[in-house]
Amino acid sequence: MLVLGFLLFSRLHAAAGTSRAAATANARHLQSVERVLHLDVEPAANRWLAGHPALIQPAVYCYRLYYAVLLGVLVWVYVRHTEVYRQVRRTLLAMAVLVLPVFWALPMSPPRFALPGVVDVVAEHDLFGSTASRDLGNGQNHFSAMPSMHVGWSLWCAYAVWLALRATHPRAALLVWAFPLVMTAVVLTTGNHYVLDVAGSAALLAIAAGVAARIGSGERARVAGPVAQEQQNERQQE
């Protein structure tokens, strides 16, 4: 079911909000908001990475291969921490469902397209030699910068591990939040996302976790209802 859900998500994501004109207009509006808030750090961050060649390849690896971490965390929780697996799986699916309307309603051009002078670091130094991030006709959605799902899925990984370890290994549970912080630095410096995209990712996780918790509470209540009724009947018979 999870695999089918993500295949469907991929298809719907690819079809969502593909208007370049709308994506560019939204990106310009977002940039104006960031300027007012003094958050428009993306060009400076991109120049900083371009000036530190030793960090470019690690950044590209992180950007390209984070799906391996996502899959690894999902399998690890399923095998080793079944007590939280249903909660984190619901959260993952809720994130996928909740973000699609945003992609459809708010197409967003990334800094590498919308900001003059920003270098597409991933395309320039891709470890697979791919230029897919520049090819607008390859079937991918290049205008879904808001929110950043690289950061969103990384936040989910940290949340899942934190939920599994917080009772037994509280320090390790806190350390895992370094992963989405690193991913935030990667997406900003490589020219793929804005600061407010990252804020949108954090909001997405928080809402999805709340929705998943509510669904879980409802399921537990439905299961507990017949048991409680049976216990009440037994007490009445006594």
Results as ranks from 00 to 15, higher is better:
168 T>V: 03
163 L>V: 08
166 R>V: 00
190 T>R: 05
180 P>R: 05
151 V>S: 00
170 P>W: 11
158 A>W: 07
128 F>G: 12
133 S>G: 15
177 W>V: 14
178 A>L: 14
146 M>K: 05
174 L>D: 12
188 L>E: 01
185 A>E: 14
181 L>D: 01
142 H>M: 12
130 S>G: 01
137 G>W: 10
182 V>G: 02
190 T>I: 13
174 L>H: 11
135 D>L: 13
143 F>V: 00
184 T>F: 11
187 V>K: 03
168 T>R: 09
149 M>P: 06
131 T>V: 13
148 S>V: 05
168 T>M: 06
173 A>S: 12
158 A>D: 15
135 D>S: 15
192 N>Q: 10
128 F>H: 15
188 L>Q: 02
172 A>M: 12
154 S>M: 13
191 G>K: 01
148 S>E: 11
171 R>V: 14
139 G>V: 04
167 A>Q: 15
142 H>T: 08
127 L>N: 07
167 A>Y: 11
189 T>Q: 14
166 R>Y: 09
153 W>E: 14
156 W>K: 05
148 S>G: 08
174 L>S: 10
161 V>A: 00
193 H>G: 00
156 W>Q: 06
167 A>I: 09
179 F>G: 04
143 F>C: 01
131 T>P: 13
164 A>Y: 08
181 L>W: 11
135 D>I: 07
190 T>Q: 06
183 M>C: 08
155 L>S: 08
158 A>I: 07
147 P>R: 06
166 R>M: 05
185 A>Y: 09
174 L>C: 15
137 G>V: 02
154 S>K: 09
179 F>D: 03
160 A>V: 04
159 Y>R: 04
177 W>M: 14
183 M>T: 06
128 F>W: 09
182 V>H: 09
184 T>G: 10
145 A>E: 07
144 S>A: 10
142 H>E: 13
181 L>I: 08
151 V>T: 00
131 T>A: 13
147 P>K: 07
148 S>I: 04
181 L>V: 13
188 L>C: 05
185 A>C: 09
134 R>E: 04
147 P>N: 06
128 F>I: 14
129 G>K: 06
168 T>Q: 06
166 R>N: 02
152 G>T: 02
181 L>S: 08
186 V>F: 00
168 T>W: 07
133 S>W: 14
142 H>K: 15
152 G>P: 03
143 F>I: 01
129 G>M: 05
193 H>W: 03
131 T>H: 10
179 F>Y: 10
129 G>N: 04
155 L>P: 02
179 F>E: 05
129 G>C: 03
192 N>L: 07
133 S>T: 14
144 S>P: 01
162 W>K: 07
127 L>R: 07
188 L>K: 01
